[in-house]
């Protein structure tokens, strides 16, 4: 049984980057779908509470980086998110920033020995 639990502040900070990149790759997604995808991609190692996605999604939406579409599915209303024109370069930029961050962290945490 998988529990999407996230208490890690560091992880929470990177959630924006994760969501933007996921949407860049997948196109249009709804909340539950995103949650499942994160779970699958992280091989169930990334523990975030399911609900934690939504405040971040709403923030991204408010920034104007996401487009929102509502679809009626039976009696349920499903909210689909996708990158907006404004959000696309942001997604690329955020990914690059994060990669640079990881590289920097690698430099600090795993310094190359004089030998190599």
């Amino acid at each position: 049984m998988y529990y999407c639990i996230m208490k890690n502040e560091l992880l929470k900070g990177t959630l924006k980057t994760i969501l933007l990149n996921l949407l860049e790759k997948e196109g249009e997604m709804y909340g539950y779908e995103i949650c499942q995808k994160v779970k699958d991609l992280s091989e169930e190692k990334l523990l975030i509470t399911e609900g934690a996605l939504y405040p971040t999604l709403h923030k991204l939406e408010a920034e104007g980086w996401l487009n929102v579409k509502k679809k009626k599915v039976g009696k349920r209303t499903r909210k689909y998110y996708s990158l907006s024109r404004k959000g696309k370069p942001i997604a690329v930029q955020k990914l690059r920033e994060f990669q640079e961050y990881i590289e920097t962290m690698n430099l600090i945490l795993q310094p190359k020995t004089a030998k190599s």
Binding site: Y3, C4, I5, T49, G51, P55, K59, A62
Partner: peptide, 22 residues
């Protein structure tokens, strides 16, 4: 429980903030 009690609150607070900003 999985959704997270805190997240309900955060969504609401977030909403208010976004609303104010808007």
């Amino acid at each position: 429980d999985n959704f997270g009690e805190d997240n309900f609150k955060e969504i609401l607070e977030n909403r208010r903030m976004i609303f104010r900003k808007k």
